[in-house]
Simulated assay, not measured.
Amino acid sequence: MVYGIGTDICDVRRIRASLERHGDRFAHKILAEGELATWRSRSARWPERGIRYLATRFSAKEAFSKAVGLGMRMPMTWRSCEIAKLPSGQPVLVLHGPLKEWFEAKGLVAHVTVTDETDYAASFVVVERKEPRE
């Protein structure tokens, strides 16, 4: 059963401006530890790719916060919600701390997709309540 749906479109230029204004502090506020490592690696090879990576993560976390109905209030925090990927490249949500506990206690499961183009990053999240096993 669908619990919630969230979508978000992020202007990559806005993320670029935030990085220019606040430096790495902005990325540290938004990204979990695993995401920070990927962001640093991508930014070192191709700075624009790093900016788009940060924009997709920002967008996916916004979409997730909408799908669960919390917005950006506890237990939802930027760093407690991580967008990782499977070996196939499929993005997956990895939750941490109180957000993970809250999510699991409600019996929820999430599906996420992200995409980016030159000026925009977009994400879509569907959260379902697990069906009880009979």
Rank of each mutant, 00 (worst) to 15 (best):
A105W: 01
E131Y: 08
L19C: 13
R13I: 08
K106L: 15
G50E: 05
E35C: 09
R129T: 15
A55F: 00
A60C: 10
S65L: 07
C81M: 14
A37D: 15
M76P: 01
V94L: 14
S18T: 07
T115M: 09
G6S: 05
A60I: 02
M74G: 05
G69H: 07
C81F: 07
M1C: 10
V126R: 01
G89C: 09
K130R: 15
H28I: 09
A44F: 01
D24E: 15
M72K: 08
L93I: 13
F124C: 11
A37E: 15
L54V: 02
R40E: 13
W102D: 04
L36Q: 15
M72C: 07
V125F: 07
E134R: 13
P47Y: 00
A84Q: 11
K106R: 15
I9G: 01
G107Q: 05
L108G: 02
M76F: 15
R13K: 12
F64P: 01
G4A: 04
C81D: 05
K85F: 09
S123P: 12
A44L: 09
W78G: 12
Q90W: 04
S43H: 13
V92K: 08
R79A: 07
R52N: 08
L70F: 15
T7H: 10
W102L: 04
L108D: 00
A105Y: 01
I83T: 14
M72Q: 13
L19I: 09
A122L: 04
V127K: 07
A60K: 04
K100M: 11
Y3I: 00
I5N: 02
S80Q: 06
K61E: 10
K130D: 07
T38A: 05
E82S: 06
W78I: 13
S80L: 04
K106P: 05
H111V: 08
F124L: 14
W46M: 13
D8A: 08
R52L: 08
L95K: 00
V112K: 06
G34D: 12
R49D: 14
R52C: 11
A60M: 08
L93C: 15
L86S: 10
R21E: 15
G4M: 05
S18P: 06
E104S: 13
S43M: 09
E33P: 14
V125T: 03
F124G: 05
V12I: 09
A67L: 04
C10G: 04
S88W: 07
F58Q: 05
F64G: 01
E20A: 12
R13G: 03
T118S: 10
P98C: 00
P87A: 03
E134L: 12
L99S: 02
A63T: 00
I15W: 00
